[in-house]
Design a protein around this nucleic acid. Structure first.
Lengths: 110, 110
DNA sequence: TTGTTTCATTGCAATATTACGATGAATTAA
DNA sequence: TTAATTCATCGTAATATTGCAATGAAACAA
């Protein structure tokens, strides 16, 4: 139905999928990589850096902010966005625990 | 337009987002965790393990298989699925490189 | 004040995803 | 052969996502 039945999954499974979903669009990956690369950033720079319209970038920034991965502060008419280091680290541990699952030799049965 | 403009992003950005997207649904996270937990698996077990209909599980398995993260072999009337260890490792390195980006102290400007 | 800049929000169209009933294909059992 | 089992595929409905033009809100400049 286009809606995920989140209630039948564990909190951990839902948390992993929520973080993964936000990385599931190349524009948001590009935004995060750009924020990592430079030290200070404003939304306008991102519109130039990435080839999407300003409302589209703003929408992607909103999603990243909603998950706590970035934070923004108003600087006059501009808005300064950057990575939220603490929340990024927390997310990283959750994702790495999922990615680091070991495959036993026996598992390779097919 | 509901379609990602993949052509304006780098191959690396697109690759990260494609892997992330497949983890962006709790059912697929649950399927992978189950395949890691037990050593051999058939689709029917997954339908019982996860509370979704058989065609839905089959559809999620198809997406995981398409990315090469799992592989399946026919065993009579059943199909045995398991993690593709090599491809999982490759994917893990790509995702970890993205997650492991360092945040400089200066970046925390907001 | 008026205009300018910058970013957020609204509204909408196009497309993608999720879920499942019905059905099909392949194998096994009787 | 016929029936049963198992999983894939088809078709479709409900919902979500993506993208942008138009517009709004807030701060600054003249």
């Amino acid at each position: 139905m286009g809606i995920s039945k989140t209630e039948i999954f564990t909190d951990q499974q839902n948390e992993i999928s929520v973080f993964a979903k936000v990385f599931g669009h190349p524009a948001r990956v590009a935004i995060l990589q750009h924020l990592f690369k430079i030290d200070t950033c404003v939304c306008g720079d991102l519109v130039n850096e990435i080839g999407l319209a300003q409302p589209t970038i703003s929408q992607h920034l909103k999603e990243l902010k909603h998950l706590g991965l970035i934070k923004g502060s108003i600087e006059g008419t501009r808005v300064c966005y950057c990575i939220d280091a603490d929340n990024w680290t927390k997310m990283k541990h959750i994702m790495q625990e999922f990615l680091d699952q070991d495959v036993s030799a026996k598992a390779d049965c097919c």
